[in-house]
Computed example of a mutant assay.
Amino acid sequence: MEIGIDSFAAILPDPETGRTPSPTDRMADLLDEVQVADRVGLDVFGVGEHHRAEFLDSAPAVILAAAAARTEKIRLTSAVTVLSAVDPVRAFQEFSTVDLISGGRAEMVVGRGSFGEAFPLFGLDTRAYDDLFAEKLDLLMTLRETTFPTWQGRFRPALTGQGVFPRPAQDRLPIWLGVGGTPESFGRAGLLGLPLMVAIIGGSFERFRPLVDLYREAGRRAGHDPATLKVGVHAMGFVGETDAAARDAFFPGWAHLTSKVGRERGWAPPSRAQFDAMAGPEGAFLVGDPTTVAAKMLAASETLGGLSRITFQMSTASLETAAMKRSIELLGSEVAPIIRAAPKA
Rank of each mutant, 00 (worst) to 15 (best):
G4V: 03
S7A: 12
D14N: 12
A28V: 11
D29T: 09
L30M: 08
Q35Y: 04
L42N: 01
L42E: 00
D43S: 00
A65K: 13
A67S: 06
R70C: 04
L100V: 05
E107H: 10
E107F: 04
M108V: 12
G111M: 03
F115T: 15
F115N: 14
T126C: 10
D130G: 06
E135F: 01
K136T: 07
L137A: 11
L137R: 09
L140K: 00
T150I: 12
G153A: 13
P157H: 09
T160G: 11
F165I: 11
P168V: 02
R172V: 03
R172T: 07
G178Y: 00
G180L: 10
S185Q: 13
S185V: 05
G187K: 08
A189M: 00
L191S: 15
I201P: 04
G223M: 00
A227H: 14
T228G: 08
T228M: 02
L229R: 06
V233K: 10
M236C: 13
E241Q: 09
A245K: 04
A246Y: 03
R247Y: 01
D248S: 03
A255I: 02
T258V: 08
K260E: 14
S271Y: 04
D276Y: 01
P290F: 03
K296C: 01
Q313R: 14
A322T: 11
G332T: 04
I338N: 01
A342L: 01
K344A: 13
K344D: 11
